[in-house]
């Protein structure tokens, strides 16, 4: 298609820009204006209660740079986001390949594996908090199969607690990634597999030469969703460990919550929220650009 023709087509089919005014106004009213007002408080010392507060410029942000708890929380957030993204999508893809095969129980398995994603996060977190307790089902199971020496204080040990959170998130959402991958897999025409099989390619070669490139849109969506979810993770952390022991599992989100609602440092907490927003935006934009380039290259 020539660029002249593209221009003509756009001129003929694109609606006038002011058609977007009603939607944009609503978006501005419910999203942009409240958010901007929220950002304003990041430059104040508002305690969440007192209507008399002072504008303090960038002090909240400079304090944030020197705050060990905040730095630690940012590090935990990055660790969780990366681990969740890798594991959730790895497991999700394997499950998708499994339930996309011709096994008899595939429909039942799809429902079963997707089921945890349908349960509220807080419910699964409390369930796992009991299962992972010192006398919970996990330790009892280890005892039962003669592995009593492997018993751990899963959520009370600062070295393990963060990984238990990752495990719970992956358990809950691997099925969600699987569903998106299955949709992607089903859009790949059977003929391509058959042609490749006739040409003598094995399953590994077929995966890398056919499945991976044609699955690129599903990979993009899954990675985007899991990295954003991982960075913003709150419910599971709060219910499983409350950010503890000490600050061993605090993420930016739990710190925002504690600083605002427990310590009454709303201004500081909103400054943290602004930082989180920037991290989410940068990470998702970078990832989206990279993956979109990949997608174009693959197609």
């Amino acid at each position: 298609m020539t660029s002249d023709r593209k221009k003509r087509l756009r001129g003929r089919t694109a609606p006038p820009w002011w058609f977007t005014v009603p939607a944009l106004s609503l978006f501005a009213f419910v999203v942009l204006v409240p958010s901007a007002r929220g950002v304003y408080y990041a430059f104040t010392d508002w305690d969440g209660l007192d209507p008399d507060f002072a504008v303090i410029g960038l002090r909240n942000f400079t304090e944030l740079l020197g705050d060990d708890d905040a730095r630690q929380a940012i590090w935990h957030t990055v660790l969780i986001a990366v681990a969740v993204t890798v594991l959730q999508n790895g497991v999700g893809l394997l499950l998708a390949l499994g339930v996309n095969s011709m096994i008899k129980t595939r429909n039942f398995l799809r429902v079963l594996l997707f089921a945890p994603a349908m349960i509220a996060q807080i419910v699964t977190a409390y369930l796992w908090r009991n299962l992972l307790g010192p006398d919970g089902a996990v330790n009892s199971l280890l005892d039962g199969i003669g592995l009593g020496s492997w018993r751990q204080d899963w959520l009370g040990d600062p070295k393990l607690a963060l990984w238990m959170i990752v495990l719970v998130v992956v358990w809950q959402y691997a099925g969600y990634s699987m569903v998106i991958f299955v949709a992607g897999l089903q859009s790949i025409p059977k003929e391509i597999y058959e042609a490749a099989a006739i040409d003598g390619s094995g399953p590994v070669r077929r995966f890398f030469s056919i499945v991976r490139p044609l699955l690129a849109p599903a990979i993009t969506i899954n990675l985007m969703l899991s990295i954003i979810g991982g960075i913003k993770l709150f419910d599971q952390v709060y219910a499983l460990t409350g950010g503890g022991p000490g600050h061993a599992t605090d993420t930016i989100s739990t710190l925002i919550y504690k600083d605002a609602f427990t310590l009454g440092e709303f201004g500081y907490s909103i400054a943290l929220a602004v930082v989180l927003t920037v991290i989410v935006a940068v990470a998702s934009a970078a990832q989206y650009t990279g993956l979109a380039r990949n997608e174009r290259a693959a197609s």
Binding site: P34, S35, G38, I270, L276, V280, A281
Partner: peptide, 13 residues
């Protein structure tokens, strides 16, 4: 995405 994230995090405050 950035705007949605901002809204989710900040409107409550």
């Amino acid at each position: 995405f950035a705007a949605i994230a901002a809204a989710t995090l900040l409107t409550a405050c």
